[in-house]
Design a protein around this nucleic acid. Structure first.
Length: 191
DNA sequence: GCCAACGTTGGC
DNA sequence: GCCAACGTTGGC
């Protein structure tokens, strides 16, 4: 695993209490889905699990997002934002760990590569419809926080009542409110 | 711009 | 494999 591509310690001229470049108050939180099981798309296996991400030695381009609501979430991501890694389309779906956005949105060139898994004939270098961000592995939970468990808290007045994942279950990149993030972290750490 | 038909996602 | 919930397409 690579080192975080963060700046080193603050310069001596700054007070020790200097705010980090992306303090919690301005950090946004997200949830991104990937499929841990083999599935063929345009002849390519799109399998990608948290263990695959953890094994990467350079930032991972999160390509293949072909939905405009998900794309708008990608475009709103800022370096330093954190995202849950969610395993979908598998026997036990759920949140399995955390990654960090290390590079903001750039065009997803796989969209105009006719040989790629995510080819979109309506886009091209002159029509950059789709974007990706780069992410890095941060941690894997000792035990996943399953979708079933999340759904226990989606009722009126409960912690995950408004969670985008639960309201728009087909969205592959969704926003997580800070309170939702902290609640889910509590579930993960309680295991 | 409406909307019926069709396609996709993803939990179950 | 089923199907609900969306999203997209295309005729009008």
């Amino acid at each position: 695993p690579s080192e975080p591509s963060k700046a080193s310690s603050p310069s001596p001229s700054k007070p020790p209490t200097a705010a980090p470049s992306n303090p919690p108050s301005t950090r946004n939180y997200w949830l991104m889905k990937a499929e841990p099981n083999t599935r063929l798309e345009n002849g390519h296996d799109v399998k990608f699990s948290i263990d695959d991400l953890a094994a990467r030695t350079s930032p991972e381009p999160w390509d293949g997002i072909r939905n405009h609501v998900a794309k708008n979430n990608l475009l709103a991501m800022r370096r330093g934002d954190l995202a849950f890694f969610y395993h979908s389309n598998c026997k036990v779906p759920g949140i399995v760990g955390i990654m960090e956005v290390v590079r903001e949105a750039t065009p997803d060139e796989s969209a105009w590569d006719s040989g790629s898994a995510y080819y979109d004939p309506k886009s091209g270098p002159e029509k950059r419809t789709w974007y990706l961000v780069h992410v890095e592995f941060r941690r894997k939970f000792r035990e996943m926080v399953g979708l079933r468990e999340l759904q226990e808290y989606k009722g009126r007045g409960e912690a995950l009542e408004g969670m985008q994942l639960l309201k728009q279950s087909r969205l592959s990149v969704s926003k997580v409110e800070e309170g939702e993030w902290e609640f889910i972290m509590g579930l993960a750490e309680g295991k």
